[in-house]
Write a protein that binds this DNA or RNA. Structure first.
Length: 933
DNA sequence: CTAATCACG
DNA sequence: GACGTACGTGATTAGC
């Protein structure tokens, strides 16, 4: 059929299909020889689905899949950096490129590419030809670069979202009609393709300008009329770059094709060609399905492994309902045996424990629940009390429970069996409970850690939230069993019948979450993160927490008393100064005295209408007013006393005489740990007075504490990631990095450096890590905002790589919705495209996350390796404080431990990463933490 | 229960 | 063109 009026051409963006398929599927390999075929499998499924979906009355008459030709295109001759920031294709994807071409031909669909041109140019040329011939065109792609082609019978179809894009759709995206899309793109540039555009102008501004002036040419001619000085100068000064950008984004409608539209006519697939190809790829399900549809015999596939290379269809949402009344209560050995047998057969089992406390070091085991098949779970009560109305509360065990010892004896072989995977939600908690009962749970998977690897930044990772979000199921609230507040009971007082429903459900949910997350780890490419940075860390943390650190109660108690005395004195002074009594601990009352009674200027109110009296405001007033200075002193003592010297004493475990913190592995989005109950990551150090708290953290008899901390790790990582030669060299040379920055910025030779200039450079260095702003730096350094902005401008001038790191990072976040650490950890940034005041916040967080997160990954790797490295030495790792590790070791072996631990920490990035900047570690030792640090 | 404040990296 | 801003945490207290 001659292409003309009434014809309908489909043009499929083949490269987009390939990358989509590659990223959507786990890295499958062909069973017989290990050839990577995941992307091919996905590609074939997509093509097959496309063919199935396009048989109706609106079916295309002509179709082609268009690919990018490997190597350079004519655009690289225009601009050598075009697409220069594209990472090379993943190793396991490269051999799949030719296979996708072969697949296209096997489906009997025209497969086209052209040396020196991109797929987009061929699509453009064919679209123009088809339109001129009076036919319709549908471009199946979501690539915005193709939007310039829409109109006159040409539409786009975003196959992922199943959304057609017409002229109005283009206006939605670009703010202009298709004819002017290239003008907007020329101005806005494109970080993905490395099209420079006009700095400072994005799509919104570009569309505004184009709509005002009518076209890019007109705009550039009349650029002098633009009111905003910055924008005007950019447009005038960057004219060449903008015109180059336009040539880069303009698609070529005249590519020299060696075929015509008529060659693209839709053809039926030939079973004799297609089936052998699919069989050779060993795609079992697809081969069968296609054979059925074509009415042909499916060729045999020799490999009979049930877990073949063929991916199953995407998991449908788990529709099985939750039925609490069907859960089993296991009351004796005969009841437990079949569950354990099934776990052995299956090779995995979800496990959850119920206890009397959230403090694992004090909690007693009350019951265990198991689940192997979704919807079928059991609860094994072992420590429920009978709840008789004994005046003192009965300690008698309730009827119908297995003796704890018997239950543990039966469970232990399964929990420790290397061939049975134990699945838990926050397994560190359960593992610690079992560890205290002499059971080492291994191997294990943890759905909380899986969720963290997959979804950090998107939501929390507690079971209730995950159940709600991923299964639309609200678990039984624990409060409904225990009550709240003062009248709350412990789990051992919960009637067994109620406990079964609650506890078994937890195991059921955990198993279902595991089934959901497991394949997602591969799809999201975070299996390595989960397996090397998350899962192995949990047992290490568990051991650190259980070991604890010795805290000397007497030291704390003495300090508390001293603080109390000083505070009483300050309190009296403050009443005197104010002329009346008041609550010093109330910011509202302090504010009222300062800004109303004393009539001072500069007071600000919080959004709730209260006077705000943060430390920096009081500090400004303190030079003139004793009142403000005394309040500051009082607050410092109050903080030290209440949070540290008093509260810490309550955390000393009576059995061990030590303090056992809990680390939350999924608490911080960036990969850092958080520490609670108590928080041992914010023990004072900056002030002289506060630092003395650390004297209460002591080594046991005959031992010493060691502190090893990374020097400037985040700045080093910034230098590496942003690739700043001057900073990298300074680290290699072991220079004072802040002094060196100062020298570079302010043109002061190192030997004439003053502390004040260095201080400013230091503040800027830290500011950069946080996503610097003029306002923030000005406040930090207490200088005028314009001056701070000047510093920042100069910094970016001297280290231009910093600016581009920030741009690349935020653009990546905007496009993908997440950023990554150097080790592949993903941190999602859902707010990055938000408007309003949240935008700047999200942007700075996105800039900071890869730096902070990479540093967090490094110390995690060190911690995971540390236990093996110090085996045989009388040493234990006790605490982690983000860039510091604290050890306790026999005094005579301290130097050996320092040497080994330092080696592990300094080489922690390798072999996954070869950093060009050295990581260095400072070490100290002493009887207490103050001395060691 | 939330806001304000302040301890740490 | 105005607005509001350093990044990441947890604990304590006041005051509703």
């Amino acid at each position: 059929m001659q292409f003309g009026k009434g014809c309908h051409l489909h043009l499929i963006d083949g490269s987009a299909f390939i990358f989509r398929a590659y990223h959507a599927l786990p890295p499958l390999t062909r069973k017989s020889d290990g050839l990577p075929v995941g992307a091919v499998a996905g590609f074939c499924n997509m093509i097959h689905k496309y063919v199935e979906a396009n048989t109706g009355p609106d079916a295309p008459t002509h179709v082609a899949v268009i690919f990018d030709h490997s190597g350079k295109s004519f655009r690289n001759d225009l601009y050598d950096k075009y697409k220069a920031n594209r990472p090379p294709a993943p190793e396991d994807l490269v051999p799949q490129f030719p296979l996708t071409r072969e697949a296209t031909r096997a489906f009997n669909i025209a497969c086209k590419e052209l040396k020196g041109y991109e797929a987009d140019d061929i699509i453009a040329t064919l679209s123009c030809q088809a339109r001129d011939a009076g036919g319709r065109v549908t471009i199946i792609s979501s690539d915005k670069d193709l939007m310039q082609l829409v109109g006159g019978g040409v539409e786009m179809l975003d196959a992922m979202k199943n959304k057609r894009i017409d002229r109005d759709g283009v206006v939605e995206k670009f703010g202009v009609y298709p004819e002017r899309v290239v003008d907007v793109q020329a101005l806005a540039g494109d970080s993905v393709d490395n099209v420079p555009g006009a700095p400072g102008i994005g799509i919104k501004t570009a569309a505004l300008l184009i709509n005002e002036f009518g076209s890019l040419e007109e705009l550039l001619e009349r650029a002098a009329e633009i009111k905003q000085p910055k924008r005007r100068e950019t447009l005038i000064g960057m004219r060449d770059q903008i015109e180059l950008s336009k040539r880069l984004v303009q698609l070529d409608c005249n590519t020299p094709l060696d075929f015509t539209l008529d060659d693209l006519e839709v053809r039926e697939p030939d079973p004799e060609v297609l089936l052998p190809f699919l069989a050779a790829m060993e795609f079992r399900t697809l081969t069968k399905r296609v054979a059925e549809q074509l009415g042909a015999e499916a060729p045999a596939i020799t490999d009979t492994d049930p877990r073949g290379a063929e991916p199953e269809a995407a998991d449908a949402p788990d529709a099985m309902p939750f039925k609490p009344e069907t859960y089993t209560c296991v009351r004796d050995a005969a009841g437990l045996a079949p569950w354990l047998e099934r776990a052995r057969e299956r090779g995995y089992v979800a496990v959850d424990t119920e206890t009397t406390s959230l403090d694992e070091m004090r909690a007693d085991l009350v019951g265990i629940s198991l689940c192997i098949d979704a919807g079928q779970a059991c609860y094994i009560p072992v420590g429920h009390k009978d709840g008789s109305d004994d005046l003192f509360g009965s300690d008698n065990l309730a009827e119908g429970q297995m003796p704890l010892d018997q239950a543990l004896e039966m469970l232990k072989p399964v929990l420790e069996d290397a061939s049975i995977l134990k699945i838990g939600q926050n397994m560190k908690y359960d593992a610690k409970i079992f560890a205290r009962l002499g059971i080492t749970v291994a191997p294990f998977d943890d759905t909380m850690l899986m969720s963290y690897a997959l979804n950090a930044g998107l939501h929390g990772h507690g079971m209730d939230a995950l159940s709600e979000r991923y299964m639309s199921h609200t678990p039984i609230p624990i409060k409904s069993l225990l009550g709240t507040g003062k009248s709350a009971i412990t789990f051992d007082r919960v009637p067994i019948d109620d406990a079964v429903k609650y506890a078994a459900e937890d195991a059921d949910i955990t198993l279902r979450l595991w089934e959901l997350f497991k394949p997602q780890l591969h799809q999201a490419r975070v299996t390595t993160v989960y397996e090397t940075l998350e899962r192995p860390l949990a047992p290490v943390l568990a051991r650190m927490e259980m070991h604890g650190i010795k805290v000397d109660r007497d030291t704390l108690s003495r300090m508390s008393n001293a603080f109390a005395q000083k505070m009483a004195g300050l309190e009296a002074e403050l009443y005197e100064l104010a002329g009346h009594d008041f609550n010093v601990q109330s910011p509202a009352q302090v504010g009222a005295i300062l800004f109303e009674e004393m009539g001072l200027e500069g007071g600000k109110k919080t959004k709730t209408g209260q006077w705000s009296t943060p430390a920096d405001v009081l500090e400004d007033l303190a030079t003139e007013h004793d009142f403000a200075a005394r309040v500051l002193d009082y607050r410092q003592l109050q903080k030290l006393k209440s949070t540290y010297t008093d509260a810490l004493q309550d955390h000393i475990n009576p059995e061990t005489g030590r303090v056992h913190t809990s680390y939350i592995q999924t608490g911080a989005n960036t990969g850092r740990l958080a520490s609670t109950d108590p928080n041992l990551q914010n023990i004072p150090v900056r002030s002289e007075e506060g630092r003395r708290i650390r004297e209460a953290f002591v080594a046991d008899k005959g031992k010493v504490l060691l502190s090893l901390d990374y020097s400037q790790i985040e700045l080093r990582i910034l230098a590496e990631m942003a690739d700043i030669p001057a900073l990298k060299q300074a680290f290699k040379d072991g220079l004072d990095i802040h002094a060196m920055t100062a020298s570079e910025m302010f043109d002061v030779p190192l030997d004439q450096m003053t502390p004040d200039i260095r201080r400013r450079a230091k503040a800027i260095n830290f500011g950069v890590i946080y996503g610097i702003s003029g306002f923030g730096l000005a406040r930090n350094l207490r200088i005028p905002r314009a001056e701070a902005q000047g510093f920042i401008d100069r910094y970016f001038e001297r280290f231009p790589g910093i600016r581009s790191y920030m741009d690349v990072t935020t653009n990546f976040a905007k496009e993908h919705g997440y950023v990554q650490t150097m080790f592949g950890r993903k941190i999602h940034t859902p707010e990055i495209n938000a408007k309003g005041p949240g935008a700047g916040f999200a942007k700075r967080a996105a800039i900071n996350a890869p730096i902070q997160g990479t540093a967090a990954d490094v110390i995690r790797r060190a911690m995971i390796r540390m236990e093996d490295a110090i085996t045989g030495l009388p040493a234990k790792m006790l605490l982690q404080v983000h860039d510091e590790l604290l050890f306790e070791v026999d005094a005579d072996r301290a130097d050996d431990v320092i040497a080994r631990a330092r080696e592990v920490m300094e080489s922690a990035a390798a072999p996954a990463l070869h950093l060009s900047v050295p990581l260095t570690v400072d070490a100290g030792q002493g009887q207490n933490w103050a001395e060691a640090h």
